[in-house]
Protein backbone atom coordinates (compact mmCIF):
# COMPACT_ATOMS: atom_id res chain seq x y z
CA UNK A 1 0.00 0.00 0.00
CA UNK A 2 2.84 2.33 0.95
CA UNK A 3 4.50 1.49 -2.36
CA UNK A 4 1.46 2.60 -4.33
CA UNK A 5 1.25 5.75 -2.26
CA UNK A 6 4.92 6.47 -3.06
CA UNK A 7 4.26 6.02 -6.79
CA UNK A 8 1.31 8.36 -6.56
CA UNK A 9 3.30 10.91 -4.58
CA UNK A 10 6.31 10.76 -6.95
CA UNK A 11 4.02 11.22 -9.93
CA UNK A 12 2.30 14.23 -8.39
CA UNK A 13 5.69 15.60 -7.35
CA UNK A 14 6.78 15.86 -10.98
CA UNK A 15 4.08 18.48 -11.55
CA UNK A 16 4.13 20.27 -8.17
CA UNK A 17 7.86 20.50 -7.42
CA UNK A 18 9.59 23.60 -8.86
CA UNK A 19 12.82 21.56 -9.12
CA UNK A 20 11.17 19.40 -11.80
CA UNK A 21 10.95 20.22 -15.51
CA UNK A 22 7.18 19.70 -15.87
CA UNK A 23 6.24 21.76 -12.80
CA UNK A 24 2.81 23.14 -13.59
CA UNK A 25 3.95 26.80 -13.54
CA UNK A 26 6.71 26.08 -16.07
CA UNK A 27 4.20 24.33 -18.34
CA UNK A 28 1.83 27.28 -18.07
CA UNK A 29 4.61 29.78 -18.87
CA UNK A 30 5.64 27.65 -21.86
CA UNK A 31 2.09 27.92 -23.19
CA UNK A 32 2.20 31.72 -22.80
CA UNK A 33 5.54 31.90 -24.62
CA UNK A 34 4.19 29.63 -27.38
CA UNK A 35 1.07 31.82 -27.75
CA UNK A 36 3.22 34.95 -27.99
CA UNK A 37 5.47 33.29 -30.59
CA UNK A 38 2.57 32.15 -32.73
CA UNK A 39 0.78 35.51 -32.57
CA UNK A 40 3.75 37.82 -33.09
CA UNK A 41 6.02 35.69 -35.26
CA UNK A 42 3.69 33.34 -37.10
CA UNK A 43 0.92 35.96 -37.31
CA UNK A 44 -1.77 33.59 -36.06
CA UNK A 45 -4.83 34.75 -34.13
CA UNK A 46 -5.18 33.87 -30.47
CA UNK A 47 -7.82 31.24 -31.28
CA UNK A 48 -5.65 29.70 -34.01
CA UNK A 49 -2.67 29.73 -31.70
CA UNK A 50 -4.53 27.93 -28.91
CA UNK A 51 -5.86 25.39 -31.39
CA UNK A 52 -2.39 24.85 -32.77
CA UNK A 53 -0.77 24.42 -29.36
CA UNK A 54 -3.36 21.94 -28.07
CA UNK A 55 -3.50 19.98 -31.29
CA UNK A 56 -5.00 16.58 -30.36
CA UNK A 57 -3.16 14.97 -33.26
CA UNK A 58 0.06 15.69 -31.36
CA UNK A 59 -1.03 14.93 -27.80
CA UNK A 60 -3.01 11.80 -28.69
CA UNK A 61 -0.57 10.51 -31.29
CA UNK A 62 0.89 7.03 -30.92
CA UNK A 63 4.19 8.64 -30.05
CA UNK A 64 2.76 10.86 -27.30
CA UNK A 65 0.62 8.14 -25.72
CA UNK A 66 3.68 5.91 -25.52
CA UNK A 67 5.49 8.82 -23.76
CA UNK A 68 2.77 8.79 -21.08
CA UNK A 69 3.06 5.03 -20.62
CA UNK A 70 6.84 5.20 -20.30
CA UNK A 71 6.47 8.03 -17.78
CA UNK A 72 4.30 5.91 -15.47
CA UNK A 73 6.28 2.70 -15.89
CA UNK A 74 9.56 4.51 -15.22
CA UNK A 75 8.13 6.05 -12.04
CA UNK A 76 7.68 2.52 -10.71
CA UNK A 77 11.06 1.26 -11.92
CA UNK A 78 12.97 4.25 -10.54
CA UNK A 79 11.18 3.94 -7.20
CA UNK A 80 12.38 0.34 -6.97
CA UNK A 81 15.98 0.93 -7.99
CA UNK A 82 16.71 4.43 -6.66
CA UNK A 83 17.51 3.30 -3.07
CA UNK A 84 20.34 1.18 -4.51
CA UNK A 85 21.93 3.86 -6.67
CA UNK A 86 25.09 5.77 -5.96
CA UNK A 87 24.15 9.16 -4.55
CA UNK A 88 25.78 12.56 -4.93
CA UNK A 89 26.53 12.61 -1.21
CA UNK A 90 28.49 9.34 -1.42
CA UNK A 91 30.62 10.74 -4.24
CA UNK A 92 30.99 14.12 -2.51
CA UNK A 93 32.13 12.47 0.74
CA UNK A 94 34.66 10.24 -1.03
CA UNK A 95 36.10 13.23 -2.93
CA UNK A 96 36.13 15.38 0.20
CA UNK A 97 38.20 12.70 1.98
CA UNK A 98 40.45 12.48 -1.08
CA UNK A 99 41.14 16.24 -0.98
CA UNK A 100 42.42 15.84 2.58
CA UNK A 101 45.13 13.52 1.30
CA UNK A 102 46.38 16.09 -1.22
CA UNK A 103 48.73 18.16 0.86
CA UNK A 104 49.06 21.15 -1.45
CA UNK A 105 45.31 21.87 -1.49
CA UNK A 106 44.61 23.65 1.75
CA UNK A 107 41.19 23.18 3.28
CA UNK A 108 39.20 26.41 3.54
CA UNK A 109 41.66 28.18 1.24
CA UNK A 110 38.99 30.67 0.13
CA UNK A 111 36.77 30.50 3.21
CA UNK A 112 37.25 34.18 3.96
CA UNK A 113 35.72 35.27 0.63
CA UNK A 114 32.50 37.33 0.86
CA UNK A 115 29.42 35.18 1.31
CA UNK A 116 27.59 36.60 -1.75
CA UNK A 117 30.60 35.73 -3.91
CA UNK A 118 30.79 32.15 -2.61
CA UNK A 119 27.07 31.56 -3.10
CA UNK A 120 27.01 33.19 -6.57
CA UNK A 121 30.03 31.19 -7.66
CA UNK A 122 28.58 27.92 -6.37
CA UNK A 123 25.18 28.54 -7.96
CA UNK A 124 26.78 29.32 -11.31
CA UNK A 125 29.35 26.50 -11.15
CA UNK A 126 26.71 23.94 -10.26
CA UNK A 127 24.63 25.01 -13.26
CA UNK A 128 27.59 25.02 -15.66
CA UNK A 129 29.09 21.71 -14.48
CA UNK A 130 25.69 20.05 -14.58
CA UNK A 131 24.97 21.38 -18.07
CA UNK A 132 28.41 20.45 -19.41
CA UNK A 133 28.15 16.91 -18.04
CA UNK A 134 24.77 16.61 -19.77
CA UNK A 135 26.39 17.63 -23.05
CA UNK A 136 29.21 15.09 -22.69
CA UNK A 137 26.96 12.21 -21.70
CA UNK A 138 24.47 13.07 -24.45
CA UNK A 139 27.31 12.96 -26.97
CA UNK A 140 28.32 9.55 -25.66
CA UNK A 141 24.74 8.35 -25.95
CA UNK A 142 24.95 9.06 -29.68
CA UNK A 143 28.48 7.90 -30.34
CA UNK A 144 28.74 4.64 -28.39
CA UNK A 145 26.59 1.96 -30.08
CA UNK A 146 25.66 0.23 -26.81
CA UNK A 147 24.44 3.56 -25.42
CA UNK A 148 22.77 4.60 -28.68
CA UNK A 149 20.76 1.36 -28.52
CA UNK A 150 19.23 2.77 -25.32
CA UNK A 151 19.03 6.41 -26.38
CA UNK A 152 17.12 5.42 -29.53
CA UNK A 153 14.09 5.07 -27.27
CA UNK A 154 14.07 8.85 -26.85
CA UNK A 155 14.70 9.49 -30.53
CA UNK A 156 11.99 7.11 -31.65
CA UNK A 157 9.45 9.81 -30.72
CA UNK A 158 7.76 10.97 -33.90
CA UNK A 159 5.92 13.77 -32.11
CA UNK A 160 7.46 15.86 -29.37
CA UNK A 161 5.51 16.87 -26.27
CA UNK A 162 6.84 18.08 -22.90
CA UNK A 163 6.35 14.49 -21.66
CA UNK A 164 8.90 13.25 -24.23
CA UNK A 165 11.53 14.31 -21.68
CA UNK A 166 10.54 11.15 -19.78
CA UNK A 167 10.76 8.90 -22.85
CA UNK A 168 13.90 7.25 -21.57
CA UNK A 169 14.99 3.64 -21.23
CA UNK A 170 15.49 2.75 -17.52
CA UNK A 171 19.11 1.74 -18.18
CA UNK A 172 19.67 5.15 -19.70
CA UNK A 173 18.05 6.55 -16.55
CA UNK A 174 20.80 4.80 -14.57
CA UNK A 175 23.46 6.50 -16.70
CA UNK A 176 21.78 9.89 -16.20
CA UNK A 177 21.49 9.35 -12.45
CA UNK A 178 25.19 8.54 -12.25
CA UNK A 179 25.97 11.62 -14.30
CA UNK A 180 23.93 13.86 -12.05
CA UNK A 181 25.40 12.32 -8.87
CA UNK A 182 28.92 12.75 -10.21
CA UNK A 183 28.39 16.36 -11.34
CA UNK A 184 26.83 17.33 -8.01
CA UNK A 185 29.37 15.33 -5.99
CA UNK A 186 32.32 17.07 -7.66
CA UNK A 187 30.88 20.57 -7.26
CA UNK A 188 29.69 20.14 -3.68
CA UNK A 189 32.89 18.53 -2.37
CA UNK A 190 35.21 20.98 -4.10
CA UNK A 191 33.31 24.02 -2.88
CA UNK A 192 32.82 22.82 0.70
CA UNK A 193 36.51 21.88 0.91
CA UNK A 194 37.79 25.17 -0.47
CA UNK A 195 35.13 27.59 0.77
CA UNK A 196 34.07 25.96 4.06
CA UNK A 197 30.64 26.17 5.65
CA UNK A 198 29.52 29.33 3.82
CA UNK A 199 28.64 27.50 0.60
CA UNK A 200 25.00 27.83 -0.33
CA UNK A 201 22.77 27.94 -3.39
CA UNK A 202 20.72 30.89 -4.64
CA UNK A 203 17.28 29.50 -5.32
CA UNK A 204 13.86 30.58 -6.49
CA UNK A 205 11.01 28.37 -5.28
CA UNK A 206 13.71 25.95 -4.12
CA UNK A 207 15.30 25.50 -7.57
CA UNK A 208 18.75 26.70 -8.61
CA UNK A 209 18.34 30.27 -9.83
CA UNK A 210 19.66 29.44 -13.31
CA UNK A 211 17.67 26.22 -13.58
CA UNK A 212 14.59 28.19 -12.59
CA UNK A 213 15.11 30.75 -15.36
CA UNK A 214 15.91 28.00 -17.88
CA UNK A 215 12.56 26.42 -17.04
CA UNK A 216 10.64 29.69 -16.84
CA UNK A 217 11.81 30.67 -20.30
CA UNK A 218 10.28 27.68 -21.97
CA UNK A 219 12.51 24.64 -21.41
CA UNK A 220 9.40 22.54 -22.02
CA UNK A 221 9.24 23.83 -25.60
CA UNK A 222 12.40 21.86 -26.44
CA UNK A 223 10.09 18.88 -26.68
CA UNK A 224 7.06 20.34 -28.41
CA UNK A 225 5.77 21.20 -31.87
CA UNK A 226 6.41 24.92 -31.36
CA UNK A 227 9.68 25.67 -33.13
CA UNK A 228 10.73 28.87 -31.39
CA UNK A 229 13.97 30.27 -32.75
CA UNK A 230 16.36 32.72 -31.09
CA UNK A 231 18.49 35.42 -32.67
CA UNK A 232 21.54 33.87 -34.30
CA UNK A 233 23.96 35.43 -31.80
CA UNK A 234 21.94 34.04 -28.87
CA UNK A 235 21.93 30.54 -30.38
CA UNK A 236 25.69 30.46 -29.82
CA UNK A 237 25.02 30.73 -26.09
CA UNK A 238 21.61 29.17 -25.46
CA UNK A 239 19.98 26.27 -27.28
CA UNK A 240 16.65 27.36 -28.71
CA UNK A 241 13.69 24.95 -28.85
CA UNK A 242 14.00 24.87 -32.65
CA UNK A 243 17.67 23.88 -32.37
CA UNK A 244 16.67 20.92 -30.24
CA UNK A 245 13.95 19.99 -32.72
CA UNK A 246 16.71 19.73 -35.35
CA UNK A 247 18.48 17.34 -33.01
CA UNK A 248 15.42 15.07 -33.32
CA UNK A 249 15.22 15.49 -37.12
CA UNK A 250 15.82 12.56 -39.48
CA UNK A 251 17.51 14.81 -42.07
CA UNK A 252 21.13 13.85 -42.66
CA UNK A 253 22.44 17.39 -42.24
CA UNK A 254 21.08 17.44 -38.71
CA UNK A 255 22.92 14.28 -37.55
CA UNK A 256 25.35 14.79 -34.64
CA UNK A 257 24.15 18.32 -33.94
CA UNK A 258 22.93 20.29 -30.93
CA UNK A 259 23.59 17.96 -28.00
CA UNK A 260 23.34 20.82 -25.48
CA UNK A 261 20.65 21.02 -22.79
CA UNK A 262 20.55 24.71 -21.79
CA UNK A 263 23.83 26.13 -23.06
CA UNK A 264 24.85 26.06 -26.74
CA UNK A 265 28.45 27.02 -26.02
CA UNK A 266 29.50 23.37 -25.66
CA UNK A 267 28.19 22.60 -29.16
CA UNK A 268 29.90 25.72 -30.43
CA UNK A 269 33.24 24.82 -28.80
CA UNK A 270 33.17 21.16 -29.84
CA UNK A 271 31.84 21.73 -33.37
CA UNK A 272 28.36 20.29 -33.06
CA UNK A 273 26.37 23.53 -33.24
CA UNK A 274 23.65 23.94 -35.86
CA UNK A 275 21.62 27.13 -35.94
CA UNK A 276 17.87 26.83 -36.07
CA UNK A 277 15.77 26.60 -39.21
CA UNK A 278 12.07 26.74 -39.76
CA UNK A 279 10.84 23.48 -38.26
CA UNK A 280 7.33 23.41 -39.75
CA UNK A 281 8.15 20.62 -42.18
CA UNK A 282 10.63 18.73 -40.06
CA UNK A 283 10.27 14.95 -39.82
CA UNK A 284 11.15 13.54 -36.44
CA UNK A 285 12.11 10.03 -35.40
CA UNK A 286 14.74 7.45 -36.28
CA UNK A 287 14.26 7.64 -40.02
CA UNK A 288 13.54 3.95 -40.47
CA UNK A 289 10.75 2.58 -42.64
CA UNK A 290 8.81 1.42 -39.59
CA UNK A 291 9.18 4.41 -37.24
CA UNK A 292 5.49 4.20 -36.29
CA UNK A 293 6.07 0.66 -35.02
CA UNK A 294 8.66 1.87 -32.49
CA UNK A 295 6.05 2.97 -29.95
CA UNK A 296 5.21 -0.43 -28.46
CA UNK A 297 6.40 -1.27 -24.96
CA UNK A 298 8.45 -4.14 -26.39
CA UNK A 299 10.31 -1.75 -28.70
CA UNK A 300 10.72 0.79 -25.89
CA UNK A 301 11.95 -1.58 -23.18
CA UNK A 302 13.00 -5.03 -24.41
CA UNK A 303 14.60 -4.40 -27.83
CA UNK A 304 17.00 -1.67 -26.64
CA UNK A 305 18.07 -3.84 -23.74
CA UNK A 306 18.89 -6.81 -25.96
CA UNK A 307 20.58 -4.65 -28.58
CA UNK A 308 22.71 -2.83 -26.03
CA UNK A 309 23.70 -6.13 -24.43
CA UNK A 310 24.78 -7.51 -27.82
CA UNK A 311 27.08 -4.53 -28.36
CA UNK A 312 28.55 -4.87 -24.90
CA UNK A 313 29.17 -8.57 -25.56
CA UNK A 314 30.94 -7.72 -28.78
CA UNK A 315 33.16 -5.16 -27.01
CA UNK A 316 34.03 -7.74 -24.40
CA UNK A 317 35.03 -10.32 -27.01
CA UNK A 318 37.03 -7.72 -28.92
CA UNK A 319 38.83 -6.24 -25.92
CA UNK A 320 39.38 -9.25 -23.69
CA UNK A 321 39.53 -12.12 -26.20
CA UNK A 322 41.30 -10.11 -28.96
CA UNK A 323 38.99 -11.43 -31.66
CA UNK A 324 38.31 -9.54 -34.86
CA UNK A 325 34.61 -9.13 -35.40
CA UNK A 326 32.77 -8.38 -38.59
CA UNK A 327 30.20 -5.65 -38.31
CA UNK A 328 26.76 -7.10 -37.88
CA UNK A 329 23.51 -5.85 -39.25
CA UNK A 330 22.55 -3.72 -36.29
CA UNK A 331 25.91 -1.97 -36.32
CA UNK A 332 25.47 -1.13 -39.97
CA UNK A 333 21.98 0.09 -39.12
CA UNK A 334 23.42 2.24 -36.35
CA UNK A 335 25.82 3.90 -38.77
CA UNK A 336 22.95 4.84 -41.02
CA UNK A 337 20.63 5.99 -38.28
CA UNK A 338 20.13 9.63 -37.38
CA UNK A 339 22.28 10.79 -34.50
Amino acid sequence: MEFFFDIFQNTIDQFTNPKKRVFILYLFLSILIAVAWLIFHKKKSLKESIKFIFNPKVFFSKSATSDYKVFFINQIIMLLISPHLLTQITIATALYFFFFEINFIEMGLFASSPKYLIVSLFTLTHFIVDDFSKYIVHRWMHNWPFLWALHKVHHSATNLTPMTVFRTHPLEGLVFTLRSAFAQGVTISTFVYLFGGGVDLYTILGANLFVFFFNVFGSNLRHSHIGIRYWKWLEYVLISPAQHHLHHSIAKEHYNKNYGAALAIWDWIFGSLHHSEDTDNLTLGLGTKDDQKKHTLKELYQTPFIESFKFLKRYFIKVFLFKKINKNKSEIYYKKSPQ
Partner: peptide, 15 residues
Protein backbone atom coordinates in the same frame (compact mmCIF):
# COMPACT_ATOMS: atom_id res chain seq x y z
CA UNK B 1 22.42 20.09 3.24
CA UNK B 2 23.65 21.32 -0.14
CA UNK B 3 22.80 18.00 -1.78
CA UNK B 4 19.30 18.12 -0.38
CA UNK B 5 18.89 21.74 -1.51
CA UNK B 6 19.93 20.85 -5.05
CA UNK B 7 17.59 17.88 -5.04
CA UNK B 8 17.81 14.23 -5.91
CA UNK B 9 20.34 13.05 -8.46
CA UNK B 10 17.94 10.33 -9.57
CA UNK B 11 16.84 11.13 -13.11
CA UNK B 12 15.25 9.23 -15.96
CA UNK B 13 14.89 12.33 -18.09
CA UNK B 14 16.31 13.20 -21.49
CA UNK B 15 17.09 16.89 -21.56
Amino acid sequence: DLASKIGTSESAEND
